[in-house]
Simulated assay, not measured.
Amino acid sequence: MIRLARRLAGTTAVCVALGAALAACGTTEAPHAGPPAPSRPSSSATPPPTLAPGPGGAAPVFMNGPRTLGKTVAFTFDADMTADQGPRAAAGEHFDNPALIATLRRLKVPATIFMTGRWADEYPDQARSLGRDPQFEVANHSYSHYAFTGDCYGLPTVSAANMKSDVERAYAALLRAGVPHPMPYFRFPGGCYDRQALRAVGPLGVTAVQWDVVSGDAFATDADAVAKQVLDGVKPGSVVVMHCTRSAAPTTEQVVRTVVPELRKQGFRFVKVSELIGETPGHR
């Protein structure tokens, strides 16, 4: 077992919009089956870069890379699924998007996938494939996509006492699915966090990864409008948030086919989040 040992910088409270919240229902406490397994970050010989520690041991927040080190952009995709959506998946609803992943592979676009533990439990073969493909890196998006603050787009919430164990439970699910080196990066469900949430996950050594470009693909039906929003928003060092859940983001694969060649035409190079963090002053 490898322990995440980095402590991170605190920030002020903030809640960043996804454009539309992913649907969730059920109780306000994430189901918990026994004691959580400890988290395991990447066990590669060279640890992935994270941001430097800060006062109080709260997790730091990363939003974008340097603007002055060339035209790089990181595409990130949230693989969302709540603990109580199993019956919907069993009834045929698709929370995965194999066509999107196939397009990213065909276009040779590296990406960072923020995966909920519940998604990994539902689609272990896909989780394993992504985790073992060097084109991608898999990071933590909580276990059940329950919010870490109140009033986060209607999402159920995780209590402060269970925030750390929820992240640990997600890491355990990723490892169980066959992701060999989950990254020490965490994305808050809905992008919602505050000081309490940052302090709760700080002991795990994760860097909280947000974004500076909201694609607006959640529940969107107009792929051209989403593509325009991405193209209008991208700057050197940008982090773009999108989704790889067919039922909640049906246009994303088409958006990727549109924006990738255009961004390359503009001189952008696609990188993973880890590369942007590694270029950021103060990283470890």
Rank of each mutant, 00 (worst) to 15 (best):
Pro66Tyr: 06
Gly57Gln: 14
Ser42Tyr: 08
Gly70Ser: 09
Phe62His: 00
Ala59Arg: 01
Ala45Met: 05
Gly65Lys: 03
Arg67Glu: 09
Cys25Ala: 13
Pro49Asp: 03
His32Glu: 10
Ser43Gln: 08
Val73Asp: 03
Ala58Ile: 07
Gly65Phe: 01
Met81Asn: 06
Asn64Ser: 15
Ala59Lys: 03
Asn64Gln: 15
Gly86Met: 02
Leu51Asp: 00
Asp84Trp: 10
Asp80Ser: 05
Thr72Cys: 05
Ala74Ser: 07
Ala30His: 11
Pro87His: 02
Pro38Glu: 06
Phe77Cys: 05
Leu51Glu: 00
Ser39Ala: 14
Met63Cys: 14
Gly34Met: 05
Gly54Gln: 04
Phe62Met: 03
Gly34Thr: 12
Thr46Asp: 09
Arg40Pro: 04
Phe77Ala: 03
Glu29Val: 12
Ala45Ile: 13
Pro31Met: 04
Gly56Tyr: 08
Phe62Pro: 00
Pro60Met: 04
Met81Glu: 09
Ala33Trp: 09
Ala37Trp: 11
Pro48His: 04
Thr68Tyr: 13
Pro53Asn: 05
Gly34Asn: 10
Gln85Val: 09
Pro48Ser: 13
Ser42Pro: 12
Ala83Ile: 09
Ala45Gln: 11
Gly26Lys: 08
Lys71Gln: 12
Gly56Pro: 06
Glu29Asp: 11
Ala59Gln: 02
Phe62Tyr: 04
Thr46Tyr: 09
Gly86Leu: 06
Ser43His: 06
Met63His: 15
Gly56Asn: 12
Ala30Lys: 07
Gly86Arg: 07
Ala59Glu: 02
Ala59Trp: 03
Asp84His: 15
Ala52Phe: 04
Gly86Phe: 01
Val73Leu: 06
Met81Pro: 01
Ser44Arg: 15
Pro55Ala: 14
Phe62Gln: 02
Thr82Cys: 14
Met81His: 04
Ser43Leu: 13
Arg67Pro: 00
Phe77Arg: 01
Pro47Phe: 03
Gly70Asp: 06
Gly26Glu: 06
Cys25Ile: 14
